[in-house]
Computed example of a mutant assay.
Amino acid sequence: MKNETNTERTCPKCGCAYHGRPALSRTDNETLICPDCGTREALEALGISSEETEKIVSIIHRNRAE
């Protein structure tokens, strides 16, 4: 399981490479997607606008870097 988080994957939704744990897509409950797309899907389900969603994803990235 430890090696799972170090494996580079490509998100089938956005095409970006990522490391770490994947998220389970809410659209089919089967597809593994990158954490960013998982966050976007969750926020979309809550009715958050795409503009606000991108701000939130940006903040998450900024805080990860610290």
Rank of each mutant, 00 (worst) to 15 (best):
E4N: 13
D28I: 00
T53Q: 09
A45L: 09
R26C: 02
T31E: 00
I60Y: 06
C11W: 07
T10C: 08
H19D: 07
P22R: 01
T27I: 09
R64A: 06
I60D: 03
C14G: 06
I48Y: 07
C16S: 15
E51I: 12
S49M: 01
H61G: 10
T53N: 03
A17R: 15
N29Y: 09
A17S: 15
G15C: 04
N29C: 08
R62Q: 13
A45E: 13
E41N: 04
I60F: 05
N3C: 12
T10D: 08
T39K: 07
H19W: 14
E44N: 14
C34Q: 06
C16M: 15
S49I: 00
I59W: 04
N3S: 14
G38L: 01
N6W: 13
L43C: 06
L46M: 12
H19L: 14
N6L: 12
A45H: 07
A45R: 09
T7K: 15
G15D: 10
D36K: 13
C11E: 01
T27W: 02
E4K: 14
T5D: 11
T53F: 05
L46V: 02
A45M: 08
C14K: 08
I59Y: 02
T7Y: 08
C16G: 11
S49T: 15
R9A: 04
C34D: 03
R62W: 07
H19P: 03
D28G: 00
A45T: 05
S50I: 11
S50K: 15
K13Y: 04
R64N: 09
C11T: 01
T53G: 02
T27C: 03
M1P: 01
R26H: 09
S49Y: 01
H61F: 11
K55I: 11
C14M: 12
C34M: 03
R26V: 02
R26W: 03
I60C: 05
T53M: 03
E44P: 05
V57G: 00
T7Q: 12
Y18N: 04
R9E: 05
Y18I: 02
S58T: 10
T27H: 10
E41R: 01
K2A: 15
R21I: 08
E66H: 13
R26S: 07
E44G: 12
L32V: 07
H19G: 10
C11G: 03
